[in-house]
Design a protein around this nucleic acid. Structure first.
Lengths: 145, 145
DNA sequence: GCGTGAATGAGAACAGTTCTCGGTTCAGCC
DNA sequence: GGCTGAACCGAGAACTGTTCTCATTCACGC
């Protein structure tokens, strides 16, 4: 997605919840857009030194509520943030148990389709209203091997 | 798995790390064995009032290090604990975004096999040493619909 | 420019988790 | 059975990622 378009969508989604798309919030979206995986707050602050910690937490919460960003938590100490899937593409995570890093990967659409069908059956059987699935691969990243 | 056998294995695994399989640790394993999904510390303490919070945290950490229990974290406030997969069976989680509850479900072995093959390819391509995969279904549970 | 309400950032507060420490229990040895 | 030292226990303090507070600043409509 083109960055300008990304900002337009983010702006529109914030407006529908009565929020402004401010400089700081734009900066957060930009940092997340340039990353190739979910980032922790310390990583975000490191990448844009102009951001204050408390504001970063608050603004990421606002952006999450507007469905612009998505918060994920691993066994790592910090939560991680990434752009909402409909702003990027459906993907999964390679989670390193040694250093805690998280990288993205995608599956073949046909595999995703099969998976969705199977999971829909499971959800039906349990009267569970499924919103989305989450598939992670846990192990050791190339750097830590 | 028969409970007696479960305790034998737990005991053996703790011994290899120089730890004892004490009454409190046995109680934790028993509570987790009887649950039909991962439990939070408050839930565990509720189910066995004889357990002290600080000891529960410590002993669950010990049991995790001995690969007897497994710690998972969701977007909920509390971490959750379940028995290690090789003491139960390979399964996945239905995670309710409303109440935070987590229930188990299993997939057809053939689907699991397909998934494993696809994921093995992904891991190879990225020089990632995969240990296991994790597949969750996020949505709304029957009670919260 | 002015007024008003949202946004900001520094630091306090909060809460889940971990650590400390004095007392207790257990395994191994005699 | 009694001794001894190490492991374990529980209550509370400490720690730390996150959230909240509040005085100040900023953005937008007039």
């Amino acid at each position: 997605m083109v960055t300008a378009e990304l900002h337009d969508i983010a702006s529109a989604r914030l407006r529908t919840t009565g929020q402004r798309y401010t400089t700081r919030r734009r900066a957060l979206v930009e940092v997340l857009d340039q990353a190739d995986g979910p980032l922790t707050i310390p990583q975000i602050l490191e990448l844009d030194r102009s951001l204050a910690q408390s504001s970063a937490y608050r603004n990421l919460a606002v952006l999450e509520q507007a469905d612009v960003v998505h918060r994920i938590v691993t066994n790592d100490d910090f939560a991680r943030y990434e752009l909402a899937e409909d702003l990027t593409e459906h993907h999964h995570h390679l989670i390193c148990r040694t250093c805690g890093s998280v990288a993205d990967f995608t599956l073949d659409p046909s595999v995703e389709g099969d998976l969705d069908r199977v999971l829909a059956d499971v959800a039906d059987a349990q009267s569970f209203q499924a919103d989305h699935h989450r598939l992670d691969l846990v192990g050791t990243c190339a750097d830590c091997r």
